[in-house]
């Protein structure tokens, strides 16, 4: 059974169909409780209404037209035509997007490249079976100082090779003297060497 308040609210909201509305009105006539509740609710709502909306300061409404006319005659604050404003906004949006995109690409260019020990091993000893521990040892060298003397690789390998017990591995490491890499490095000037060092030093090596 629906509560009286719910019925009244449903009626006032127009949510009852024609038959329900008629039934409700009949019920109001018969049931005193329902009628009292209905009067209470409508009374509360009535309290929010003003007796007369026309008794207020009429001068405000009289002066409204002159005020509006004045505002209509005022020169527009914005000197920009809508088309110009849209165009400027569009250009700004394109500029901002371009700057953001350029920044994004720059960041990608500066990104540190990671290479693994195994990759270095493959680069240095393409034909060898040199194990990971040797490659690890090779990487402990102070690259900066050694590059400056231009004898980096020779010194590096001489030292490391002497510490290798496996003869086969020693042989593969020594073979590196004949690689193209060495030949190229011999032809490099001091400046070229430095720039090469810089590019290598910006590369992080994962172990």
């Amino acid at each position: 059974m629906m509560k009286n308040k719910d019925k009244i609210l449903k009626y006032l909201s127009g949510l009852m169909n024609k038959t329900e509305s008629e039934q409700f009105l009949n019920e109001i006539e018969k049931s005193e409780n329902l009628r009292k509740e209905y009067e209470k609710i409508t009374g509360k709502l009535k309290c929010l209404e003003l007796e007369n909306e026309n008794i207020f300061d009429e001068s405000y409404f009289i002066n409204l037209i002159p005020k509006v006319r004045n505002r209509l005659e005022e020169p527009s604050k914005s000197k920009l035509k809508p088309q110009t404003a849209y165009a400027i906004t569009l250009i700004l949006a394109i500029l901002i997007t371009s700057i953001l995109l350029i920044n994004k690409f720059n960041k990608q260019d500066n990104k540190v490249n990671f290479i693994t020990v195994n990759e270095i091993e493959t680069m240095l000893y393409p034909d060898s079976t040199l194990n990971e521990s040797l490659a690890g040892k090779l990487l402990t060298y102070d690259l900066e100082n050694d590059f400056k003397t231009k004898n980096l690789l020779t010194q590096l390998y001489t030292d490391q090779i002497s510490s290798i017990n496996d003869i086969n591995l020693q042989a593969s490491a020594i073979n590196l003297d004949n690689t193209d890499l060495f030949q190229i490095m011999d032809k490099l000037s001091e400046d070229e060497f430095k720039s090469m060092y810089k590019s290598i030093s910006s590369t992080k090596i994962l172990r």
């Binding site: 609210l9 449903k10 127009g14 609710i41």
Partner: peptide, 16 residues
């Protein structure tokens, strides 16, 4: 709209 009004009516009475 009727549903909105019904909800509003309920809230208004509660707020009163």
């Amino acid at each position: 709209l009727k549903a909105s009004y019904h909800l509003a009516l309920k809230k208004v009475l509660k707020n009163i």
